[in-house]
Amino acid sequence: MSPKKTPTRTWSASGDLAARRRALNAASAREYAHSRHLAQRDVLLSILTPIVLLAIWETAARLGWIDARLFSPPTRILSQGATMVANGQLWANLLPTLLRLLTGFVTGSIAGIVVGLLMGVSRVVRAALGPMFTALYALPKIAILPLLLLIFGLTETPKILSVAISVFFVLQINTVAGVVQIDERILEAARAYRATGWRLFRFVLLPGAMPSIFTGLQVAAGSGVIVITAVEYVASNQGLGFLIWNSWLLFQPAQMYVGLIVVSLLGALLTGAVVLLERAVVPWRRANTLRKKRNT
């Protein structure tokens, strides 16, 4: 194999150190620029794909290739959205959903984490509650909505409870798993340094379970949005779920699309908030990626 001919600059062995340094810096800058270029291209492509698809949709609907009554063209959805923002209809439906979702999510999460931690640290509690919760977890949470409606009537309580219950189970399971999965060698080290009781909990068990708890919060954010939407389909006369359902009854597809978009945005925002919280609370998990970023 013949050596590949590459343009090279050569330096004498004694070395023009400054020239060598300059060349090195220039090459490094080129490499950096190239990787930056690739990263920018990735971002551009990720934005371009949905824009192209939307443009195709728009064209297809306008030219009658698809039924514009069912597949409202994007511009139509946009103007519908603007109208709904202007006349307050969107806000009137967004606010109740937001309140129900947040109240249910926060109370359900806290209860789930507390119970999960108790189960994680106490064998007695784990034995008493574990199998029962596992059995209850299999029950589709939305299926108990009629029962909740029966008990609490058509108030806010059954809607919030539905979200809270589904969030609770996810968090409880993830928290127990987080505590139980802590490396035996870590626990041994804690024991060797005489961390017991509250200090064991505060300095070892709680931080050890944190990553798993945040995984649970992310999953729960998604399922909370699903549950509140489904609840509002059947048991509410306001909210984004109601908006979507009602659009079907009234045959208003553009309005339905607006509802769908806002619901997905809500889910994305809640998940994003959880991710931000995780970065603040679990800094050791992201420290690694930070360093990698700085290196590139």
């Binding site: 490396d183 060698r185 870590i186 041994e188 080290a189 804690a190 060797a192 340094y193 300095f203 070892v204 931080p207 050890g208 944190m210 679990v282 050791w284």
Partner: peptide
């Protein structure tokens, strides 16, 4: 005690 490095607390 000194354990293998796994005994260091990651958090």
């Amino acid at each position: 005690f000194v354990f293998q490095e796994h005994g260091v607390f990651p958090w």
